Amino acid sequence: MNEIVQPGIRRFGRINWMGLYTLAEREVRRFLVVWTQTILAPLATAALFLLIFTIAVGPQRGDVMGVDFLTFIAPGILMMTVIQNAFANTSSSILVAKVQGNIVDTLMPPLSGSELVIGYLVGGMVRGLIVALAIAIGVWLTLGITPQHPVLVLGFVLLGSAFMGGVGIVTGIFADKFDQMAAITNFVVTPLAFLSGTFYSIDALPPVLRQVTHANPIFYLIDGVRFGMIGASDSSPGLGLVICAIATVAISVVAWGMLRSGYRLKA
């Protein structure tokens, strides 16, 4: 017998589980439909990075933190790809809905601001996790690297995906056109990913730049995954988890406030 839903009864307990699940499922299906662009393409890009550095640098670079250069940069490339894709998933979802005029389909259902944030973040986190798994398998097959602390790697990947997914939500809400989002991607997200210890140890930086890098949450994400993969890092993984967790909560609160108020979403 079908359940009769009475008017006004919209959620089970305090959370609209059905609505939350539906939004999260939509966000996951949205990138799985075009998996060649959202999963295969990042894997190919990561492989190209490793190939180029193998050809251009190879063993001539010497060891970094007691490991060869390719082993050192592989975790950084993995995490850099994860955060870029988590950001792209949430930001593009919201911006496309705004441009096409169907963002109302997301705002009208009985979903609270926190449920909207969680639903969008689940999509970004699942995409980040799949990309991380694909690259990790590729790194294992080509370089023979297996995570020394897999639980720590998983924790940083999920935190990084959630943090950049939250940044993507804020960006998608703020941007009104694709070129605005492209500007944020090209001039903010990509430089931060490249200049956060992905290809080098921050010990090589001047003291001032080293202090600036320590204020960047993405540095701790990349450094934490590197420790989890190869057991070497520039900072304490515990400190990195705390800073990344605080940054994730902070950006999620900002995203919650914007979604709850309908900022730049309601005509």
Rank of each mutant, 00 (worst) to 15 (best):
L121E: 00
L152G: 05
G113W: 03
W140Q: 15
Q100R: 11
S112G: 10
G62P: 13
G138C: 04
V151E: 15
T81F: 06
I130N: 03
I103N: 00
G66V: 10
A74V: 03
L107Q: 13
L141C: 15
A132W: 00
T81W: 03
L116H: 07
G113T: 04
P147R: 10
I103Y: 08
A134Y: 05
L129M: 15
G128Q: 02
I73W: 04
T142N: 15
P110H: 12
V96D: 12
S93A: 15
V126C: 03
T71S: 14
G124H: 00
I103E: 12
T81H: 00
F87M: 08
Q148S: 15
S114D: 06
T142R: 10
K98D: 11
D105P: 03
I73E: 06
V67A: 04
I73F: 07
I137E: 06
M79N: 01
G119D: 02
A97F: 07
V82Y: 00
V99C: 04
L133E: 04
M79I: 04
A86Y: 08
V126R: 01
L116R: 12
V104N: 15
F87K: 02
G123W: 01
V117S: 04
A86T: 02
N102F: 15
G76V: 08
L143E: 05
I135P: 06
A88M: 06
M108E: 13
V153D: 00
L70H: 08
N102C: 08
D68S: 09
A136M: 13
P147K: 10
F87W: 11
D63G: 15
V153E: 01
P59V: 09
G123A: 11
I145K: 05
Q148C: 13
L111Q: 08
T106Q: 14
F69C: 05
E115F: 04
L70A: 07
L129D: 02
V99P: 01
G101Y: 07
H149I: 06
A86I: 04
V153K: 00
G66P: 10
P109F: 05
K98N: 13
H149Y: 13
I73V: 14
F87R: 02
L116N: 05
M79G: 01
P109L: 09
D105E: 15
T146C: 07
I77Q: 04
T106M: 15
M108N: 14
V139N: 02
R127V: 03
D63P: 09
P147A: 12
V104A: 09
V131H: 02
I130W: 02
V99I: 12
Q148Y: 15
M125L: 11
D68W: 06
M80Q: 11
G124I: 02
T81I: 02
M125N: 04
A134L: 13
M79A: 03
S114L: 14
L111K: 08
G128I: 00
M65S: 12
V104S: 13
I137W: 06
S114C: 08
Q60K: 14
Q100L: 12
V117R: 02
G128H: 00
L133K: 03
A134C: 14
P147Q: 12
S91A: 13
D68H: 12
V122R: 00
A97M: 13
I77T: 10
A132Y: 01
M79F: 03
L111N: 07
G101M: 05
R61P: 03
